[in-house]
Simulated scan of single mutants.
Amino acid sequence: MPLYRDEAIVLRTHKLGEADRIITMLTRQHGRVRAVARGVRRTTSKFGSRLEPFTHVDLQLAEGRNLDTITQAETLSPFHAGIGLDYDRYTAGTVMLETADRLVAEEGEPALQQFLLLVGGLRVLAAGDRPPHQVLDSFLLRSLAVAGYAPSFDACARCGSLPHEGAAHRWFNPSLGGTLCATCRVPGSASPAPDTLALLGALLAGDWPVVEAAEQRTQREASGLVSAYLHWHLERGLRSLAYVER
């Protein structure tokens, strides 16, 4: 069987037979891949904990008819060591993994930007230098943008008009792509505070000084809008998001 190498982030696993597991991964070159790890559930397995969620690994795989088979696995970054023992980091990280799994729908399709974004997000999350909810919200907005669902927090998402100097569009609607001007506003649109829209733009752009200066009330409102925007574009909610303290 032909062999190939790639690096990957393990997204999830599930049991197969008595000793095997199917590993779902986001890889650097081959997008989302599902592969079999033979005998990985045995105590004598040479893979051990290398194929657990959050692990950044270098793999060798053998191509198969239905599923590829993992033949070698070397740990590059054990992100689970810095994430798994902290509830807030763990739940935020789990949402990041599930989001990547959902946004990269086609197996084998390259998704380099999503892969690099996930590796970077998990690295920051594991380091513990920033609050988990800020890392998560920034990751979700950027991941949606990479997938083609970039929200607008400045110009009107419907007509493209910019707000008048010193002001900001006051309406937000996930189904229409972000902020709306007074003319394009539709029933059911939210009316977030101007500081909240500024925070959302900073999270998308990675402007951390603005993010860090935001009040808790503003951060909570921004997190709610990020969740609403994510749910709309994924068409169904993420199971893991229910466990995140928002």
Rank of each mutant, 00 (worst) to 15 (best):
R236Y: 15
G93L: 05
D68T: 04
A73P: 02
D154F: 10
N173G: 01
Q29V: 01
Y87I: 07
Q219G: 09
F172N: 00
A198H: 13
P192E: 14
A150N: 05
R217L: 14
V57G: 01
I23E: 03
H56C: 01
S143P: 03
T43K: 08
A73T: 02
R142D: 05
A62W: 03
K46T: 11
E107H: 05
L116C: 05
W232S: 02
V40G: 01
P174L: 06
P187D: 14
D58R: 06
G82V: 02
F172S: 00
T183W: 14
D195Y: 02
F79V: 02
H80V: 01
L3P: 03
R142Q: 11
F153K: 02
L26P: 00
E221K: 10
V210L: 07
R220Q: 15
R102I: 13
E245S: 14
T99I: 14
A168M: 09
D137M: 07
Y90T: 02
T196K: 03
V40C: 10
A37T: 02
A73F: 04
A167W: 11
A62S: 15
G206M: 13
T44S: 15
R158Y: 09
R41F: 11
R102Q: 12
V146R: 06
S223A: 15
V135A: 03
Q113P: 01
A145T: 06
L85H: 11
A19W: 13
A37V: 06
Q72I: 06
C159K: 08
E98A: 09
G17N: 12
G17C: 07
E215P: 03
C181L: 14
G120Y: 01
L199H: 08
T75A: 11
L241Y: 08
D6W: 10
R28G: 03
Y90K: 03
A37Q: 05
R34C: 14
T91M: 08
P163H: 05
T44P: 08
G108N: 12
P78V: 02
V226R: 01
H233C: 03
R21W: 08
L241E: 04
T71W: 11
L3S: 13
V33Y: 04
S49A: 15
E18F: 12
G108A: 11
A228H: 04
A205E: 15
R5A: 12
S77T: 07
E109Y: 05
L103R: 01
D6Y: 10
V124N: 04
S49I: 07
R185M: 04
H169F: 07
D154A: 09
L200Q: 02
A222I: 07
F153H: 00
V226E: 00
G148L: 09
R102C: 09
D137S: 13
I83P: 00
R220W: 13
